[in-house]
């Protein structure tokens, strides 16, 4: 019976992990040691700021992050004045004013990042019919999460295998479902210069921007894991105490 129980448990784990991974058909992604993984993982502040810069200077041309407000950039290590300056670089459409007109003004820390296009139709019109998704939740919305984003960003330029069709205006990328993606290879050497004057490689930029997007999808992650450690300690102590009380109480029962 013990053996059967073990079998059942092993099968349960096997089956749940399969159900989550969605079967065997996902190819092995390029795995990275992310600083934010694990029970005590935190976001690397330098990667976050570099990633934000890559997002701002490269991705933001087509992709929005509409769920992030400028003030939330304080989590990246920026102070209030820096955030005000960043926000002031954007224009947001507000109103209507007393005359009933919508107007543009410089963004404030309480504003969300303005979208790159007025609406989805405008986005498709500007991108050959393809819709660049908003990136606020992207690392939670794709199987493989951060590893998928990193693999995708660094997956361009490989040799197209025989039999793989690549249509006009699309690019070969082994990590994208169907292996053809409308996104132009976004990262190039020298496209971004960090504030210390260094010019990052494609892999470095991909790592930084993936970290930034992982933060954008789960800005609560560091608080969550910190509270989690406290909760687990509390519950472990509670369980132990209850176990001892139970032993004490049950010692009165005749076997």
């Amino acid at each position: 019976m013990k053996k059967l129980l073990t079998t059942a448990i092993v099968l349960a784990i096997f089956y749940v992990s399969h159900a989550i991974a969605g079967g065997d058909d996902t190819e092995t992604l390029v795995r990275q040691d992310w600083a934010f993984e694990g029970m005590t993982g935190t976001f690397d502040r330098e990667d976050l700021q570099h990633g934000f810069q890559v997002y701002k200077e490269v991705c933001a041309a087509c992709h929005g992050i509409k769920r992030i407000r400028f003030r939330e950039l304080s989590s990246l290590g920026y102070n209030e004045d820096e955030i005000k300056a960043i926000a002031a670089g954007y224009e947001v459409k507000v109103g209507p004013d007393d005359m009933g007109e919508m107007y543009d003004r410089a963004a404030r820390p309480s504003d969300a990042f303005p979208p790159p296009y007025a609406n989805d139709k405008a986005a498709r019109a500007a991108n050959n019919g393809a819709l660049p998704p908003d990136l606020s939740l992207i690392s939670k919305a794709r199987v493989g999460g951060a590893d998928y984003l990193y693999s995708l960003l660094t997956g361009y330029g490989g040799e197209v295998p025989a039999g793989q069709e690549v249509s006009e205006g699309l690019y070969y990328n082994p990590w994208f479902p169907g292996h053809q993606i409308a996104m132009v290879p976004p990262l190039q050497e020298g496209i971004v210069t960090y504030s210390d004057g260094s010019s990052p490689s494609i892999a470095e930029m991909a790592k930084a921007v993936t970290t930034f997007l992982a933060w954008a999808a789960e800005p609560e992650m560091e608080t969550r894991k910190q509270s989690g450690i406290e909760a687990l300690i509390y519950l472990a102590v509670f369980s132990l105490l209850m176990y001892l009380v139970m032993r004490q109480v049950w010692s009165r029962v005749e076997k």
């Binding site: 969550r224 509270s227 989690g228 472990a236 369980s239 176990y243 009380v245 109480v249 049950w250």
Partner: peptide, 29 residues
């Protein structure tokens, strides 16, 4: 008291998922 002990162990497992693998049972889609 036996139920409270069981609750402690159960809450520990539940909390593990909430705080460390909150989307384990979910679908990215």
């Amino acid at each position: 008291v036996k139920d409270l002990f069981g609750l402690g162990i159960f809450a520990f497992i539940w909390a593990f998922f909430i705080f460390f693998a909150p989307n384990f049972f979910g679908e990215p889609d």
